[in-house]
Design a protein around this nucleic acid. Sequence first.
DNA 1: CGGAATTGTGACGGTTCTGTCACGGAACTG
DNA 2: CAGTTCCGTGACAGAACCGTCACAATTCCG
Lengths: 228, 228
Amino acid sequence: MKPYVLIAEDEKAVSELLLYNLRKEDYDVGIAGDGEETLIMIDERAPDLLLLDWMLPKVSGIEICRRVRTTGANPNLPIIMLTARGEESDRIRGLDTGADDYVTKPFSTTELMARVRAVLRRIRPGLKEDRITVGDIEIDRVAHRVSRKGSDIHLGPTEFRLLDYFMQHPGRVFSREQLLDTVWGSDVYVEARTVDVHVGRLRKALRNGGGDDPIRTVRSAGYALRED
Amino acid sequence: MKPYVLIAEDEKAVSELLLYNLRKEDYDVGIAGDGEETLIMIDERAPDLLLLDWMLPKVSGIEICRRVRTTGANPNLPIIMLTARGEESDRIRGLDTGADDYVTKPFSTTELMARVRAVLRRIRPGLKEDRITVGDIEIDRVAHRVSRKGSDIHLGPTEFRLLDYFMQHPGRVFSREQLLDTVWGSDVYVEARTVDVHVGRLRKALRNGGGDDPIRTVRSAGYALRED
DNA sequence: CGGAATTGTGACGGTTCTGTCACGGAACTG
DNA sequence: CAGTTCCGTGACAGAACCGTCACAATTCCG
């Protein structure tokens, strides 16, 4: 599951450079050219990291940072601020408004990528885990194996990906649209109801050896993996 | 509960300066003068943040970082690396070994404190950020759960949205029209009296396990969630 | 190549949710 | 105090949601 990084940058040369480096490290990447588009794209698909230029047209980067932190749906969105403003007071302002890191232009892409990795490493500790256990369910992502109470459970590829995603975020409710974007991919056009069918298949498989249903349905909201 | 910050630094002047600034911002602070003492102190009391000098006697900072990340009891311990080593390759190495941030000596204490705040701001898991408690009622917006006195309360989608809105503004009175706009949506045409019915349903659910009515009716004005 | 596995979709039906109405008690007002 | 307004509440009908089944098409693999 690739982390999704959103680049909010109006300078084409900079965003192309970032795009190239992020794609090289196998990140999923979106680009927004102004502040308004940035806010829309964050709403449409919550990124795992926002690379945010300070001086964006329409809505400034610092204002976006403030909004994300105070009224956004995802106040913990990691933000790395990019800018040519080198004054220390600007850096302090950026960090105190809510940025996680601050990189001054012109920057070394090598160092920026290291900072991207450091920030993502913190928010996605699960990414580094080869095995995750939630309740009595264990998933081994390297060996592509799933077990419950020590018994192997066979899953098809889609159900495996679905469970993998749930296991990285125990307790969190995901809408059908979110699951389609992240488990199926944002360029796949599938009915939302198909999620229900696959959740049903996953449930059936997990309950095969007896045991409770580990997946909660939240009516009109979506599904979540139970934490306990 | 004050965050506990451990300073791992052998230069007395630097550690005293950091101590002063951290104490000023009301952090709990420990100081270790060499690498061995650092590891011992981490084991004795897990810090919320480690300010880690690269060139420590006995065990180097970079080695401590590596150990914490790979074999430590708390692999997610936030680490800010401090050093006079200004080469970019050192910075990359520090970040890739597991540091969350990297500050070059001589540093501005103001900027370092902003980075400390930024890193500490992130240590709380996202799930906890999205929980609101008012009186004995708790709502978890990410997990879409509501509980009162520790017992789960089932709410339908509309009642959940209504309570969510009230919980964001405890004590504040909202008219029926306001609630229709914000909870139902401004393009939905519903009788104002319908709000009363839903408030009644919310009251009933919240009082299911005993307990007072948490919602105040203000005649001719609207409703408010009690703050106490 | 053929059989098995996987995937997406449509339809059915049971359950839950929603909005409305009517009744009557509580609160307010002149 | 009587009349009016407001709001709590029970009941009901219709709509929405979601679990499940079955099937066809596609993909995978021996």
